[in-house]
Every structure is written in structure tokens, then in C-alpha cells.
Simulated assay, not measured.
Amino acid sequence: MSERVLRVGYVPGVTPDKWARAWRERRDGVLLELVLVEEADAEQAVRDKRIDMALARLPVDRTGLHLVRLYDELPVVVVNREHPAAAYDEIELADLADEQFITGIPEGLIPRANQLTFPPMSAKEAVEVAAAGTGIAVLPMSVARLHHRKDVTHRPVRGPAPTTIALIWLTDRDDATTQAFVGVTRGRTPRSSRG
């Protein structure tokens, strides 16, 4: 008889290693398969049942989904190493109002500069554009670290709301295996009760 598999997707920047280790220690005959999914595809991959669950970045459409918030990610600004923001340990969002935003204007900021129109691009591409000095990108810190280059730096930025990582799965897939993985992400031990 083949071993059952729980397929859990995760978006770039999320590091599911600690949960995978905890799962392997108590898996009860179910193999955990981790699948990297693009951020824009995580919700649909769950809905299409290509994966059983996903560690996704919010927001997602919660219709038909269970969702457990896991943690918030610190927003950072990614700039060329020569950019004035590189001199600070941390920067206020309002201090970036004269900049060109590659990844879209953060909510709550009224830019003073006429904004260039950048095509939709991946985080990696946005970091490449920031490296060229054409603009700046506001990204979750984990994503900025993932795409780090020698010619860019990132600094925490005060003002934008943090992004949230959550575990999502279909409401009709709420079995013991699913709940066991939810327990792992919530830090429950094999002996602790659900809740």
C-alpha cells in the first residue's frame, strides 16, 4: 500500500522548514510534500485541488476556504545601494513620496512625483528594476531577502500595513490529517488538544 501524501503549497519568502520537521516527527503514515507556488496562484491551486493546503499571503477570497492567520511580515523598501534611503536604519513611508514605486503606491501615501507606469512584474523583476535605480519597491522582508542582490539593500518602512501569512484550505477538506497539519502550524504538540 502506498503512503498517503499531504501536499502543502507555500509562496516565495515563506520558509516551511520548522513545520515540515515537526510533521516528520509525528506524521502517522502521511508524507508531507511541499510545493512552491507563485503568490498569485496559491488560492487557485487550493481551489483546483492541485495542493491540499497553502501557506499564502493575504488577502484571499475566503469563500469556501478555512483560514488560519500565522504571522505578519514586516514591509521593507528595496532600493539601489546608492539611494539616499540606504543611509537609514528605518524610513517613514511619507519620506518616500517623491519616489517612483515599481510595485504600486502603498495604501495611504499620496505621491508628490508623477508616477511612471511599470508593467506587472514578479518580485524578482522589481528588485532588478530597483537595482538599476529606476524606482523603489515595497515588499515583505522575506521576499526582499529571497531576492537579495549585492547592488540593492532594503530598509524597514514605517507606514504600510504588514502583510499576513495564513494557512488556507477548502472547507470540504477538514479531515484529521488537515487538522493535524493546522496543529503543527499552531505549535500544538501531539499530546495537546485542538484549540
Rank of each mutant, 00 (worst) to 15 (best):
V14M: 11
S193C: 02
V184R: 06
G9T: 08
A56L: 00
Q100D: 05
P190K: 06
A113M: 11
D172I: 06
E128H: 00
R145G: 07
P75C: 05
P84D: 04
A22L: 09
W169K: 02
L36C: 10
L70T: 08
K150N: 12
V11W: 01
L32A: 07
H147D: 08
T189E: 10
G159W: 03
V14S: 06
A97W: 06
T63N: 11
A54M: 06
T134P: 02
D17A: 15
R173I: 04
V143I: 15
L6H: 10
L55M: 08
E25I: 00
S2P: 12
R57V: 03
D172V: 05
R7H: 12
R155N: 08
R24H: 11
A56R: 01
E107C: 09
Y71W: 15
V76S: 02
I51D: 03
M141G: 00
E39G: 15
V37S: 04
D98A: 13
L116E: 07
R81D: 03
T189M: 12
A176K: 12
D151Q: 14
L32H: 03
L36K: 14
A86W: 09
D174M: 13
L116K: 15
D72E: 15
P84T: 06
L139A: 00
A132V: 01
V77I: 07
V11M: 04
A180G: 14
I91E: 02
P106C: 08
T177P: 09
T15V: 15
V68C: 04
T164E: 07
R47L: 12
P106F: 07
T15G: 11
R112C: 06
M141E: 01
R24T: 08
T178A: 09
L96R: 03
F118V: 05
I110P: 00
E25Y: 06
H148I: 14
R7D: 08
A85D: 09
Y10P: 08
L58H: 00
A22R: 11
A166M: 05
K49N: 11
L167P: 00
R69N: 14
Y71I: 00
D175V: 11
G135V: 01
R81Q: 09
P111L: 07
P12G: 06
G187N: 12
E73H: 04
L32E: 00
A137D: 01
T177R: 09
A166Q: 04
E43W: 05
W19E: 07
P190A: 07
A144T: 04
A86E: 10
L116C: 02
T103L: 04
R27E: 11
P12M: 08
A94V: 15
Y71P: 01
P119S: 13
V14R: 01
V143Y: 00
D172C: 03
W23Y: 07
V30A: 02
V46C: 08
R21Q: 11
P111D: 03
V68N: 04
D41E: 15
A113T: 11
L36P: 15
G13A: 13
D72G: 10
V68E: 10
T163L: 04
W19N: 03
A176C: 05
P59S: 04
A161S: 09
T153E: 05
R4N: 15
